[in-house]
Design a protein around this nucleic acid. Structure first.
Length: 198
DNA sequence: TCATTAAAGTTAT
DNA sequence: ATAACTTTAATGA
């Protein structure tokens, strides 16, 4: 949870609900609001020139959406799309910035979030450019697993479709699938009824 | 080696 | 039922 729900409510945040595949904001929109997910999953994406989807990030309960844009005067360079039924708290940008000025500890938490986002971007950029498919997928899975308590092998079920893993790493699905099969042969992952255990 | 295309099977809505 | 996802195979850069 980035900012406590009570605080957001107390300063006038409203809850908005989204259906799967509903757009929260689009590339080119003016960032006017701070968004925080109460419940549900959201993706931030782009499309490259061929129309292939590039997923920038996947977000879940408690995380904020596109917060970095609120500190600049730029248009959103990405789309935010609900993946499941979502309820999202929305707060006007102005109020959000006042919160930052007023409460240093909230501001510090925000910096923490921004740092995490930046860190993920650095990891994934290194990943996108060079590297073989196995390394790419391993970096992604390592990152996802790093948030788990249980670190033993095969204890973590990757909560992504192969499609999503491909879109996050810049691979095509078929390559992702073949590579994951290879990783199963090499005992890096286990596959149980199509679910990937790492 | 990996992307792309096509085709078919499987799962989720 | 229909769309979304998974898988395999052939082909080309």
């Amino acid at each position: 949870m980035v900012i406590k729900e009570e605080i957001l409510h107390s300063v006038g945040a409203i809850t908005r609900r989204y259906k799967p595949s509903e757009i929260i904001f689009s590339e080119g929109d003016i960032p006017n609001y701070y968004y925080q997910i109460i419940e549900g999953d959201v993706k931030l994406n782009n499309y490259n020139d061929d129309g292939k989807e590039i997923i920038q990030t996947l977000l879940e309960d408690g995380q904020s959406i596109g917060e970095s844009l609120l500190f600049m005067d730029k248009l959103y360079p990405i789309n935010a799309i609900a993946l499941s039924h979502c309820s999202v708290l929305r707060l006007p940008k102005k109020v959000f910035l006042d919160l930052m000025k007023l409460y240093p500890d909230i501001c510090l938490d925000m910096n923490k979030v921004l740092s995490q986002r930046l860190y993920f971007k650095i990891i994934m950029t290194q990943n996108m450019s060079s590297q073989n498919p196995t390394a790419k997928l391993k970096v992604l899975m390592d990152y996802l697993k790093s948030f788990q308590k249980e670190q033993s092998p095969y204890s973590f079920m990757i909560p992504l479709t192969r499609q999503q893993m491909a879109s996050l790493t810049g691979l095509c699905v078929e390559t992702a699938i073949r590579t994951i099969k290879g990783m199963e042969r090499d005992k890096i992952v286990r596959i149980e009824n199509r679910k990937i255990l790492y």
